[in-house]
Simulated assay, not measured.
Amino acid sequence: LNSALKQCDYQTLIHGDAKLANFSANSQGHILGYDFQYVGAGVGVVDVMYFMTSCLDDSELHKHAQTYLDYYFSQFKNALSHYQPAVNA
């Protein structure tokens, strides 16, 4: 799996340690990130999975992962259509 992720065509900068303790929300609902010591190239969904596994226990992850991933990919598709319309989501 790691080898396949490293060979993906579309990589971005990822946090690398996207756990709940490294994020907070302000009173306006903006998410703030901290502790960027592991930043590097990677596939964005890696950070999504790190974050989800830091927030949910195993049973919650199995119960809700698909719903959260569907939401992530719908938002990702919307962002691509806005910022990179030439990329086919």
Rank of each mutant, 00 (worst) to 15 (best):
A18H: 01
H30R: 13
S54I: 07
G40N: 11
S59K: 15
D35C: 04
D17M: 04
Y34R: 03
G44C: 10
A21I: 13
E60V: 11
A79E: 12
P85F: 09
H62M: 09
S74K: 12
L56R: 01
H62P: 00
F36T: 08
F23T: 07
A65H: 04
H64D: 14
Y83L: 08
T67A: 15
D35K: 03
A25T: 01
N2K: 08
Y34F: 15
L32A: 03
S54T: 11
A79S: 09
G40M: 08
Q37T: 04
H82R: 12
L80Y: 05
V46S: 10
I31G: 04
I14L: 02
A4Q: 12
D57R: 05
M52C: 13
L13S: 01
A41G: 07
M49K: 12
F51N: 11
A4G: 08
K19S: 07
L1C: 06
L5V: 06
D17W: 01
L1I: 02
T67D: 13
Y68E: 09
S27N: 14
L80T: 01
D70G: 08
A18L: 05
G29P: 03
K63A: 15
H62K: 06
F51M: 15
L13I: 02
Q37I: 00
N22D: 14
S81Y: 00
K63P: 10
K6D: 06
H82N: 09
V48P: 00
S27C: 07
V45I: 15
E60D: 15
K63H: 15
D9S: 07
V87D: 07
V45R: 04
Q84M: 12
Q37C: 13
V46T: 13
N22T: 03
D58A: 15
D70Y: 01
S3G: 05
D35H: 09
E60L: 15
A25M: 11
I14A: 01
S24E: 09
S59D: 15
L56N: 02
N22F: 01
I31V: 14
H62T: 00
V45S: 13
E60F: 08
K19W: 13
G29F: 12
Q7Y: 06
V48G: 03
L32E: 03
L1F: 12
L13P: 00
V46A: 10
F23L: 12
L69D: 04
F23I: 09
V45H: 03
L13N: 00
